[in-house]
């Protein structure tokens, strides 16, 4: 696994969201993740495969479903930092943007 692969995998906001969800909320199946996030199950599976290819998550079959778990990789700290800090900025910028929501451009 190369660092490029890791960051390429996390360059997509939906994949970051999925990864963060798995990191914070623990192992989950694609069906569970699709129910929690505004993404179809099919898209979730595709994104999880990209995360798995970068070895950011592992998968284990459970009956008819596959359960995904975050990998405690050496890069977990870097990845976690980027996910956390990115989410913080999304919130802050939404706050800043909301201060202008009622105004029109001059």
């Amino acid at each position: 696994m190369s660092t490029d692969q890791v960051f390429s995998a996390l360059s997509d906001p939906t994949r970051r969201q999925l990864f963060t969800r798995l990191a914070d909320g623990g192992p989950a199946t694609a069906t569970q993740l699709a129910a929690e996030l505004p993404v179809t199950r099919q898209a979730v599976v595709k994104h999880l495969e990209a995360l798995r290819a970068a070895e950011l998550v592992t998968s284990a079959r459970e009956g008819r479903e596959v359960r995904y778990t975050v990998t405690p990789a050496p890069l977990a700290d870097a990845v976690g930092w980027i996910a956390d800090v990115g989410a913080e900025w999304d919130t802050r910028l939404a706050t800043l943007r909301s201060q202008f929501s009622t105004r029109q451009p001059k």
């Binding site: 660092t3 930092w81 990115g86 900025w89 910028l93 800043l96």
Partner: peptide, 14 residues
């Protein structure tokens, strides 16, 4: 390793 996060938004004001 340099960790970096980048974001961009547009505001309707100068």
């Amino acid at each position: 390793v340099v960790h970096e996060v980048e974001r961009e938004i547009e505001l309707p004001a100068p």
